[in-house]
Computed example of a mutant assay.
Amino acid sequence: MASPPSPVHGRGAQSDAVPQRFGLAARELDGDWLDAREDIDGPGPKLRTTVVEEKPKTIVSFNQSPDIPFDRSINAYRGCEHGCIYCFARPTHAYHDLSPGLDFETKLFAKPDAARILRETLTKPNYRPAPIAMGTNTDPYQPIEGRYRITRQILEVALETRHPVTITTKSARVTRDMDLLRELARLDLVAVGVSVTSLDPRLSGLLEPRASSPAKRLEALGSLVAAGIPAHVSIAPVIPSITDAFIEGILQEAAARGVTSASWIMLRLPHEVAPLFREWLEVHFPERAGKVMNIVQSVRNGRDNDPSFFSRMKPQGVWAEVFRTRFRLATRRLGMNTVSLKLDSSHFVRPSPGGQLSLL
């Protein structure tokens, strides 16, 4: 039996597989020297993160998907240094002729003009406000936000115009914008979701190598609650035989910090995410890789992924029902999900084309 490949330390993806959907030529190392290449050539160069500044013409993306609860979103960055191996956004890097693997977490794009473009969008007479979702594709608080502050600038525009926003993140950096979030919350303009996948820092370090530790994410949830900011814990994704053992524990830890809203999402493996995730399993959990993928396929109609509208977010089968029941019983016991949160769009103030808010 072949031994599993050596891990790429500090990164989620274990290779830079080229997407085959677009007919790009695949490159594969070959030769007897591969097993001893580090002894011969020494270790390869350390992966470095690079950032390209992007100049988009639009910043708000609209969708008509029946499977998600929002119709518009903003992503300040393309690619994500958190490196979550399961990230469903990885295939978007293929549109840049880049790999959804290591390129996705090392070759990033930032949109410094996002706040200015958002303001221009909000000035349009036909624009009608509704909550803008942030963090739906890549994390708005990944490490480069500390340098660019694009997410903070977007929140400043939201507060100025009284426009509602939602945030989803795996980073405790969200608390750095507590001043803005507190003011937005006072006006019923914001809700913050923090995704927690496990309570084991070592496991999270393999799954999400550059995201905040589980303890820091839970601490951030507690800080948000204490500041009066609507906070939500998302167990996303649930990975069978890897993270599902933590469902009740995560909910209990969040509830102990005053969080009353929770959700879960089953692992999704679209396009190149499936082979990247399989490779990750072979590196880190070879003894249970087969079991994990058998369960994944059992809830996705026998496939690695179900891309169809109406069913892609609704896993089926016995295992899906087990997870669903466990989540329902735990939230009921903890008194969670008894009140629905509704953000307020009624106080939206359209900015004038000159940059000042309209007085009308």
Score class of each variant (00 low, 15 high):
A25I: 14
G258S: 11
L159P: 01
V196T: 05
E248H: 11
L118N: 03
T92Y: 10
A226W: 06
R176A: 11
R152T: 15
I250N: 05
F285W: 11
Y95W: 11
R268I: 03
N126H: 14
M293T: 04
G101D: 11
M266A: 15
L221Y: 00
P140L: 09
W280A: 04
L359N: 13
C80P: 05
E321S: 13
Y86L: 12
I239P: 00
A94V: 04
Q356H: 13
E219I: 06
E38D: 15
N63H: 09
K216H: 13
I68F: 10
L47P: 04
D200N: 14
N63G: 11
P209K: 05
G31W: 09
G290P: 03
L251E: 02
I247Q: 04
V165I: 12
C87F: 05
A76S: 15
L199N: 11
R78G: 07
V190M: 02
V292Q: 07
S311A: 14
D177S: 07
W264H: 06
T50Y: 11
S298L: 13
G12V: 06
I117Y: 02
L269M: 05
L251H: 04
G42Q: 10
P353E: 07
L329K: 15
P56M: 05
R176I: 01
L184Y: 01
A320K: 03
D32V: 10
L267A: 06
V18D: 01
T49C: 08
R128V: 14
A94W: 03
K55R: 14
C84S: 01
A226L: 10
T50A: 11
S346R: 13
L360P: 05
P4T: 10
S171P: 04
E253D: 15
I150P: 00
T136G: 13
R268S: 00
R162A: 14
Q297M: 15
G135E: 02
D244P: 09
G23W: 08
L329T: 12
M1D: 12
Q64P: 01
I265M: 12
K111W: 00
T331P: 01
Q14N: 07
A231F: 03
A254N: 03
G42C: 13
D41M: 15
L122A: 02
V52F: 12
E282Q: 15
H82P: 06
W280N: 03
S198T: 14
G83F: 01
M293S: 07
F277S: 01
E219V: 09
I250A: 02
V18S: 01
A130F: 09
P7N: 09
A2C: 11
R116I: 14
A245E: 13
D16L: 08
G83H: 06
P125V: 03
Q64G: 12
S346G: 14
N126V: 13
D200L: 03
V52M: 10
A236W: 04
H82C: 02
E156P: 01
G12L: 08
I150C: 03
P7I: 08
D113K: 08
V60Y: 06
D306P: 01
